[in-house]
Design a protein around this nucleic acid. Structure first.
Lengths: 160, 160
DNA sequence: CCTGACGATTCGTGCGGCGAACTATCCCGC
DNA sequence: GCGGGATAGTTCGCCGCACGAATCGTCAGG
């Protein structure tokens, strides 16, 4: 073989395997907060603002019937709330309850820490490059905002 | 006010959102092959060689009781097979059936194509850099081989 | 032998995801 | 106004997924 087993892998395998890694970290962080991955994801999306059910389906890539159940269960835990939209009687706006907001912030922060730790072996410059390249992939493929920017709402712009 | 569409996002958000993206692509590819994500992942792992149940649990990060069901369902579809280990009567070796091997190869190849396409906006040099950085993250965190290298599928999965 | 440790399955529970069918509302054109 | 198609959500039934606890048979060390 011309290619030695020095640990270098292709971009496809790297993407798939890092996905597996982040999935596991995300799920574990959620679990320790008493959430499932899906519920955690729902909270993270709602951190930005309330969403309608259809909007949520589009963002999370779920059928509307799947969403009813997810919101039901999360609502049952007192983390989200359905409010009726005054402009459209059919529609519903799903938003965080105070408790849901607090839990979302905790879960979000802890998950950030853990994902950050995954890249601990990379220096600041490397991280910046990685963020740039992955960010371009995310943008090119129009990935919904299922995870906010860490400093969203805070002026703590950063050197990296 | 949201200044996040200038294209630059942090490394954490980039990782989480690209994970979301790859998850979706993986699941869709699996679905079109009549598989669930988990079954597809199982097939991909078994492309390398047969595994014991416990070994599979460690690789996929699942409890052994979860694995029994997953292997059951996949076996019911004729894609994998349980062989008893001659060295240890208790143990079981799970391997691909011929049909499972063919389907695994198809699913694997198609999934590779689609993931590759996600990075279509990156030039060859950028892809190489991305692969290197993500590869280091994968190595540093000892991610199991849940997805082979594109060119090491054929030689390993021969005998048995 | 006996006694742990080990590999795997079974069982019960709850979550997750889907499509099809349904209800209620909205809005457009007339 | 008023019909009728589009739209927003829910309900229902089905299956897959994941887990812990309990169980069974086997292996190996004393």
């Amino acid at each position: 073989m011309d290619k030695q087993d020095d640990g270098r892998i292709g971009v496809v395998a790297a993407l798939v395997r890092s996905t597996f890694l982040v999935n596991a970290v995300y799920a574990e962080s959620a679990r320790e907060h008493g959430l499932t991955s899906q519920q955690g994801q729902l909270l993270c999306v709602l951190m930005a603002r309330p969403y309608g059910m259809g909007e949520l389906g589009a963002t999370l890539g779920l059928a509307k019937s799947s969403l009813t159940g997810l919101v039901d269960r999360t609502e049952r835990h007192g983390l989200v709330r359905r409010e009726s939209d005054p402009r459209d009687t059919r529609a519903v706006r799903v938003g965080l309850t105070p408790r849901g907001g607090r839990l979302a912030a905790e879960f979000y922060a802890e998950t950030c820490r853990r994902v950050e730790r995954l890249a601990a072996g990379l220096g600041p410059a490397d991280r910046d490059v990685l963020a740039g390249l992955l960010g371009r992939v995310v943008l090119d493929n129009k990935v919904p905002v299922v995870f906010l920017e860490p400093d969203e709402g805070a002026p703590a712009a950063r050197e990296h």
